[in-house]
Design a protein around this nucleic acid. Sequence first.
DNA 1: ATAACGATTAGCT
DNA 2: GCTAATCGTTATA
Length: 221
Amino acid sequence: MTASSTIAREALSVDVVDAAHALLGATLIADTAAGSPAGTVALRLVEVEAYRGADDPASHSYRGRTARNAVMFGPAGHLYVYFIYGMHYCANVVCLADGVPGAVLLRAGEVTEGHDLARRRRPAARRVAELASGPARLTEVLGIGREHNGADLTDPRSPVRLLQGPPVPPAEISAGPRVGIAVAQDTPWRFWVTGSPAVSAYRRGGKATRRAETGSNGIRG
DNA sequence: ATAACGATTAGCT
DNA sequence: GCTAATCGTTATA
């Protein structure tokens, strides 16, 4: 057992909300060869969102299995990568039992290794905290793309791996509505490490003109 | 076949 | 605050 042992699949074969909490504080490390400059970047996860399967209208797996979301239906611990807005990639960790769809979107992290490479990949970042402050920024600094869809994060030989980290105490975890979705805007399944400078900004989703909740932004914790 | 739209970001007013 | 950029996926406007 070293400090860099990968997370066990069993720890992720649980409900998406429990897995989301467990993922905060964990390390995501990527050794990428192709695409952007090759090298290794690692980060500590500080912001995630849970997406369940059939009962979560905001989830990609809500309307059943398709070619795109197939990985979400497989065993936990694999990476679900999708292409969005014609230019970005987002990465999720698959959860729940094999055959039950669900995943946790990785929204932000604090870069802990490979700062120089991270800066080269994200020249627009003005501060270290901005390197992976957003789901597409996170995949950009790690060099994650289509070719990593389905990668086994629990396999020490995988180019992208999840490493055990000091768990974040529940008292240091905040919760609020998920970012950028047009449905299920009241479900507080976005979780972040309270006070981390790398946590991304909240933005309400597209349509679903919901009445102003008089002063409340839905955030607790 | 075709059109609408998106789990976003950067840059500008 | 607002919007262009840009294309795969999904539903059929």
